[in-house]
C-alpha cells in the first residue's frame, strides 16, 4: 500500500530510515519546518535549515525512491525567541514560493504565550497571501486549552477551515475539531502521544474522513515506520483496503494538494533519481559505485 507520511523530520534521520520506509511502502514524506533540538541563535541558521528542506533533503529522499515535500514556518517554540523571530518572518515569503513547499507549518502554540500568538497570526496572513494550507502544531502541555485557543484564533482570523490541519491530536481533542471542517492529525509514537492501538480505536469510532496520521519522527525516540505498522494493525482489525488507503494516501494528498503544487501523477510513481546525480556536487554514495549501491 502506498503511504504519504505527512509529518516527519527527516533532517534528523539517517539513510537507513529512508531505505526502510521505501521498502515499507512510504512513497511521499512531508517534512514540516520545526525545532531542531536546540535553540538557533541567528536567522542564518534558519536559512540554512530551510535550504536543506527544499534542497539536500529532497535530493536525499529521491535517492531512495521517495518524494519529499515540506512546509515552511517559524515554529512556535522559537517564536518566543527575540533573537530570531522577526528576522525569520522576514525571510519566509521567498521560501513559501519555493518548489516543494506545500504549506505553512509547523505554526501554532507551544507555551501559549502572547508572542507565540502574534507570530502565529502573522503566519496565517502569509499563508493567505501565498495560497497555502497550514499545518498546526498543538501544545504537548495543557493541550485541550491550547487547542481551544488555536481554534479561536483561526476563527477570528477567518482562515478557511478546509485549509487547516490541526496536528498532534488525541481522543480528548478530536471532539473539538470534528465539526470545524478542518483536518485532524494524529502523531503516533512508540511510547508517548498516540499509539497504534489507540489510533485503531479512534478510527473505529470516527472513521477516516478528514483524518491524517503521522509518525512525527524526529531526533528523539520515535519510529519512522509507525504508519506502515498502523496500516498492518488496521488491516488486521478488519478495515477494508480502500479505507486504509484513504487514511494514509488520499487524505494527506487531498489536503496538501490545496497548495496547487502537488504533481499527483508524479506522486503515483517513485522518483527516478539516478545515484550518479549530485546535489551541489554532493552525493549520498560516500565513494561507492553509483551503479552498485
Amino acid at each position: 500500500m502506498k503511504i504519504f507520511e505527512p509529518h516527519i523530520h527527516m533532517f534528523s534521520r539517517v539513510t537507513d530510515d529512508y531505505e526502510r520506509m521505501a521498502l515499507a511502502g512510504v512513497r511521499v514524506v512531508l517534512e514540516p519546518a520545526f525545532w531542531i533540538g536546540q535553540p538557533r541563535t541567528n536567522v542564518g541558521a534558519f536559512v540554512d535549515y530551510f535550504d536543506t528542506l527544499v534542497g539536500w533533503e529532497r535530493f536525499r529522499a529521491s535517492q531512495f525512491g521517495i518524494h519529499h515535500v515540506c512546509t515552511m514556518a517559524l515554529n512556535p517554540r522559537e517564536a518566543n525567541d527575540d533573537r530570531v523571530n522577526a528576522d525569520v518572518l522576514a525571510v519566509l515569503p521567498r521560501y513559501l514560493e519555493k518548489d516543494g513547499v506545500v504549506g505553512v507549518g509547523e505554526i501554532g502554540l507551544d507555551d501559549q504565550t502572547p508572542t507565540e500568538e502574534r507570530f502565529f497570526l502573522a503566519q496565517l496572513d502569509l499563508a493567505k497571501a501565498h495560497g497555502l494550507p497550514i499545518l498546526i502544531h498543538t501544545p504537548h502541555r495543557n493541550k485541550r486549552r491550547g487547542f481551544e485557543r488555536i481554534i479561536d484564533l483561526i476563527r477570528d482570523a477567518k482562515f478557511p477551515w478546509p485549509h487547516v490541519l490541526l496536528d498532534h491530536g488525541n481522543e480528548e481533542t478530536i471532539p473539538l475539531t470534528r465539526d470545524l471542517g478542518c483536518v485532524s492529525g494524529f502523531s503516533i509514537y512508540p511510547n508517548t502521544k498516540m499509539d497504534v492501538h489507540r489510533m485503531v480505536a479512534v478510527i473505529r469510532e470516527y472513521g477516516v474522513e478528514r483524518i491524517v496520521v503521522n509518525s512525527a519522527a524526529d531526533w528523539g525516540i520515535s519510529d519512522p515506520l509507525m504508519i506502515p505498522k498502523l496500516v498492518q494493525a488496521l488491516l488486521r482489525a478488519g478495515f477494508p483496503d480502500a479505507t486504509v488507503e484513504q487514511l494514509v494516501w488520499k487524505n494527506p494528498i487531498a489536503f496538501f494538494a490545496q497548495s496547487g503544487r502537488l504533481d499527483l501523477a508524479a506522486l503515483d510513481r517513485p522518483p527516478t533519481a539516478s545515484r550518479r546525480e549530485t546535489h551541489d556536487g554532493n552525493t549520498i554514495l560516500r565513494g561507492q559505485d553509483p551503479d552498485r549501491s
Partner: peptide
C-alpha cells in the same frame, strides 16, 4: 524578485 524567482520554474 526574491519572491517571484522561486516560483518561476513552477
Amino acid at each position: 524578485l526574491p519572491v517571484v524567482f522561486p516560483a518561476l520554474a513552477r
